[in-house]
């Protein structure tokens, strides 16, 4: 398979073209390209480019959502191929995501979930109006690395604190990183309630999640030492 096709894969993600991405993934499989190469040399560089263009203000949220959809389409072809080979794509981390109790807004959370998924995280979206205890129970059951809590309203933002407390109460605090976000949320608020991080938008939530995974890995090294 000519190297050009890796460029085409990358471009299909930048263009936000799920049909093209899916076709290119199928071609790669039939041409005997290792699925992991198609992912890492073709599609993932596309997502990186999208992230960079977004950060430079050259791409917009609908473009990014389309790119994430194209990535999902490509992975729908390549994930089963990886499984057939007895492997799977290296996962960036497990994230349990939800909107806090009393709040039914989820557009920001959906954006974060979509981008985290596109960047290799396994995301479990608990939906809206989620109590702290449910966040904790799901984090325990799914062995989550990160819990992400969204709130749109000044009145429901306070319930993010309840999620931190529920995770502490469940004895999971040392294993689970907590990130918070939403329109009224600030870094100061995140510090005040004892969260590990605050992201002002969906793209910075991806960067934050990566940093938290690094911190977690370093923590594990320190603990093992």
């Amino acid at each position: 398979m000519p190297d050009d096709n890796f460029s085409a894969m990358r471009q299909s993600i930048i263009d936000g073209a799920p049909d093209t991405a899916s076709e290119l993934a199928l071609h790669a499989v039939s041409a005997g390209i290792a699925p992991i190469d198609a992912i890492h040399l073709g599609f993932v560089p596309g997502m990186h480019e999208v992230g960079e263009q977004f950060a430079r203000g050259q791409m917009y949220l609908p473009d990014m959502m389309a790119s994430a959809e194209a990535m999902r389409a490509a992975m729908a072809v390549l994930d089963p191929e990886l499984k057939k080979l007895g492997t799977e794509r290296p996962m960036a981390g497990i994230v349990v995501l939800g909107t806090t109790k009393g709040d039914i807004h989820e557009i920001g959370k959906i954006l974060v979930g979509t981008l985290l998924t596109a960047h290799g995280f396994r995301v479990h979206d608990l939906g809206v109006d989620v109590a702290g205890e449910k966040f904790a129970a799901q984090a325990q059951e799914l062995h989550a690395d990160i819990v992400g809590v969204s709130a749109l309203l000044t009145t429901t933002m306070r319930n993010q604190k309840g999620v931190v407390e529920a995770i502490e109460k469940a004895g999971l605090r040392s294993q689970v990183k907590i990130m918070v976000g939403g329109a009224p949320v600030t870094r100061r608020w995140a510090d005040e309630i004892g969260a590990d991080g605050y992201a002002k938008d969906a793209m910075s939530a991806v960067e934050l999640a990566r940093q938290l995974m690094q911190q977690k890995a370093q923590g594990a090294v320190v603990e093992s030492v």
């Binding site: 977004f54 203000g57 917009y60 949220l61 557009i107 920001g108 329109a183 938008d201 969906a202």
Partner: peptide
Amino acid sequence: IFDMRTGKT
């Protein structure tokens, strides 16, 4: 409006 660069309102 929903700002398509920042997701802010």
